[in-house]
């Protein structure tokens, strides 16, 4: 494990280029990559076993490889409905978190106390899942909100809001607010300026924020399991099956679905953010 101290001199790139020790520099560079790749390998290792287990079936290590675990998913109605629930909830959470995230980002830009607003919006990121799930479950019971679809959407949106707000805020920080002033001078009202001037320039941020909410919703388990009632998402189904009967091939298949879905969505987010970057590089801002 390389500690930051041993990672070399804290000089700038420019200063480093002036050095005349190509072998040492090359070794240091190799060390940098070795460290980063080492950590990344440990982080990515756990993504492999569920996929292998799902393809090997329940016959142990020497069983034939097959897709049967995946076809079982389609055959069981509980699983099919959990897929449908997951998609519906994720879509609602993505929509709600995007709208609230946009409003929060605008509030941070326009209110007099941006730090306080940011602090409040980022708070859910720091509250552990069980604490939040338990508290929300009790609170909903106390004020008479039944365990339901709406309750799950609310709980997951709280969790997704910091992420969507941060993404939208990042993209909005590259937007020049004088363009809005120009729109107002030309007679546009607030909605019109937002719709015709700002949104066309920041939509990839909204798209990215929404996708992050979608990803978080699909993966969220502990907060959801407290308020879901009789509903089941794929993630909570995995968790409750583990707790009651343990894991099997079709559960591993479900995990693999979540892993593959999440990684492909993350790639989509990077594409959206790359579009923003390219726009920023172009003269029209």
């Amino acid at each position: 494990m390389t500690s930051p101290q041993s990672s070399g001199p804290a000089d700038t790139r420019i200063a480093r280029e002036g050095k005349s020790n190509p072998i040492g520099a090359r070794l240091a560079h190799a060390g940098v990559w070795a460290y980063l790749l080492g950590v990344l390998i440990v982080l990515y290792l756990p993504l492999i076993p569920p996929i292998i287990e799902s393809l090997q079936g329940s016959g142990g290590a020497h069983a034939d490889w097959s897709w049967s675990a995946y076809s079982q998913i389609g055959a069981e109605s509980v699983l099919r409905s959990s897929f449908a629930t997951t998609i519906l909830i994720a879509a609602c959470v993505a929509g709600l978190a995007t709208i609230l995230g946009l409003l929060a980002a605008m509030a941070i830009r326009e209110f007099n106390r941006p730090r306080l607003v940011l602090f409040l919006v980022l708070l859910p990121l720091f509250v552990p899942g069980v604490s939040l799930g338990f508290s929300e479950g009790m609170w909903f019971q106390a004020i008479g909100i039944p365990a339901s679809f709406g309750a799950v959407v609310a709980v997951q949106t709280v969790w997704a809001l910091p992420f969507s707000t941060l993404i939208i805020l990042t993209v909005m920080s590259g937007f020049d607010p004088t363009l809005l002033d120009a729109a107002y001078v030309c007679g546009a009202d607030r909605m019109r300026a937002l719709w015709h001037v700002e949104l066309p320039l920041i939509w990839p941020g909204l798209f990215g924020g929404g996708l992050f909410a979608l990803i978080l919703s699909v993966n969220e388990t502990l907060r959801t399991s407290v308020v879901q009632g009789s509903l089941n998402t794929v993630a909570t189904y995995i968790w409750s099956t583990y707790k009651s009967v343990g894991l099997n091939a079709s559960i591993y298949a479900l995990m693999s679905c979540i892993i593959v879905f999440t990684i492909s969505m993350l790639l989509l987010v990077t594409v959206a953010l790359a579009i923003v970057e390219r726009r920023r590089a172009s003269p029209v801002r």
């Binding site: 756990p46 993504l47 076993p49 569920p50 992050f212 993966n219 388990t221 979540i258 892993i259 999440t262």
Partner: peptide
């Protein structure tokens, strides 16, 4: 960032 967004329960099982 990517592994953080993949359900940590799944990673724990793995």
């Amino acid at each position: 960032a990517a592994p953080f967004f993949i359900n940590y329960i799944i990673r724990d099982f793995a």
